[in-house]
Structures are given as structure tokens and as C-alpha cells.
Nucleic acid binder design. Sequence first.
DNA 1: CGGATTGATTGTACGTGTGTAACCATTTCA
DNA 2: TGAAATGGTTACACACGTACAATCAATCCG
Lengths: 140, 140
Amino acid sequence: MSEATATRVWRDLRTLVLERNERRREVADALGMSFFRVKALRRIAADPVTPGDLAADLMTDRPYVTLVVDDLARRGLVERTPHPRDRRRKLLSVTPAGASAAEEADRILGTPPPGLVALDPEELAALDRVVTKLLGPAPG
Amino acid sequence: MSEATATRVWRDLRTLVLERNERRREVADALGMSFFRVKALRRIAADPVTPGDLAADLMTDRPYVTLVVDDLARRGLVERTPHPRDRRRKLLSVTPAGASAAEEADRILGTPPPGLVALDPEELAALDRVVTKLLGPAPG
DNA sequence: CGGATTGATTGTACGTGTGTAACCATTTCA
DNA sequence: TGAAATGGTTACACACGTACAATCAATCCG
């Protein structure tokens, strides 16, 4: 019984996030770049990284990160600075323009759907508790 | 206050669905095709459609649907049959092999994460209520 | 010191998805 | 009946992401 409920809830959660509130296209249009590059920019804006680490985070390889960073740098959003302790590496960081672009992306992606905001406080609090629990210990 | 909570819950929901349980790659690997084509196959399996309607559902254009359906047909997963009332149109439907491939995709995508199954029945029921409400009236 | 390894880059090839124009058969409608 | 519109297809150009091989500087380690 509970398993069937879990399956239905999971399907509904996917529908909510992936279908009713899919904003990849919106963000990509707003920033004028592919969603993949938005992810790269947001990752760099969150905290400076080396190209190698960025490649791992994006599930891609280093050569392609070079191309993506070239593009972001050409747009004036990202800078390459030398790594303080390893001259082979570079540190990728955002420029002010890059930071504000990343903020816009965060704003678009992070704005909760109206229905969520309109929930009764008790329902929202209950949802908050459960979701926090789900993200907590087990990576499930 | 409630708005801040909604924002946090939304971020957590996105993390849960998009990061902790992203299965696009897994499904694509399992079926040996791109996730986009998996979506096409699942859509056709759910109910026969015309190429034009499928294009609208997939947010793409008709010419590309032709290519995708060519590929799925070459794999023996999809068939084109004449439309009963309009000889311009065609009806796309799955073969038995296509149906079972779509079922496998559904199984992979639809299996709830362990943490969700492990919830207390009351918590799961509460989550079920709220999520159902969110999907209900307003499209938010 | 000197070979092996690491990190970033360049280059190349390929599959995939988007967008557009053109074509043909069929249907709709004046 | 004949012009316009619709639906699927073919063809083409292009951006994007994946995957490898190779190169070079810097670092690590025996």
C-alpha cells in the first residue's frame, strides 16, 4: 500500500518539477546561452573552481569545459586567474557581470510556483519538514 | 516568512528531483537512445498520436519528429499506420517491443527513491495530500 | 635529477536537436 | 471546381554536447 503511495507521490513530484515548472528554456533564453552553460556559470558563481573540478561537477570532460569557459570569458562573465598553489591549474571566477547573470538565473530557477506560495502555512510547514527529511541523511 | 519557506521548499524539491534522482542518463543508457527519443517513445506508448501532435508535445518541430520516428521504426519499436479519417495524417503506435521498452523506461523513471518509501505512513500521506493539491487546480 | 603523472588546452569526429525552406498529397472551403 | 490550408516528408545549415587522441607546462615521486 505505502509503496503504491510512494510511487504515486514520486510521479507527482516529477510532474511538478519536470513538467509544470520546467524552466530550462526560460533561463537559457533569458541569459542567451544554453542551459548547460548556465549551469557552468552558476557553479562558478557559487564558488571559484578549477576547470577540472567544474568538468566533474558538470559530468563532462575537461576539453569541453575549456570551450565553455572560452565562451563565458568572451561574454565577459568569467575570468581565469592563476591558482595560488599550483601553476598548472587555473581558478575560474565570475566577473560582476557574471555574478549578476548568475543571480538572474537563480532568481528564475528559484522562484517557487504560485501554488506552493499559496499553500496554507501548516501544509507548507509539513511539506518543508518532509522534504528536509528526504534530503537529509540517506541520499534518497 | 511563508514566502521564504516556499522558496526553500522549492529549492529542495528541485534538488530532490533534478540532482539526487536524475535518471535521464540511466534511462537513455538502458534503452540505448537519447532521453529525447525515450520521451517520444513513452508518449507514443501512452496513446497513439499523429506526428504533428507528437511534435507539439515534445516542443519540437515536425521535420525532426520524422527523423526520430524513422529511428524508432528502424529499431522495431514504433509503427506508422494510416489515420482512420484523414489520409494526410498518420498514427504512431508502439509495437510489442516498443511497449516493453517504454515500460522499462517507466519503471526506471517511476521508481521512487528509497528515502520516500522509507517515510512514516503519516508523513507520506501528508506529502501525498499536499502534492496532489499542488497538481490540482492552479497549474502551479 | 629524471621519469611518471596531473591539469589545461588544441584538434577532430560524431550524434543529436533546432530552425528553415521546399515539396507533395490531402483536405477544406469559397 | 479551384484556391488555400494542412500534414508529413526531404533537405540543408547550424549550435551544442560527448568522446578521444595528442600536446605542453607544471608537479610529484622514486
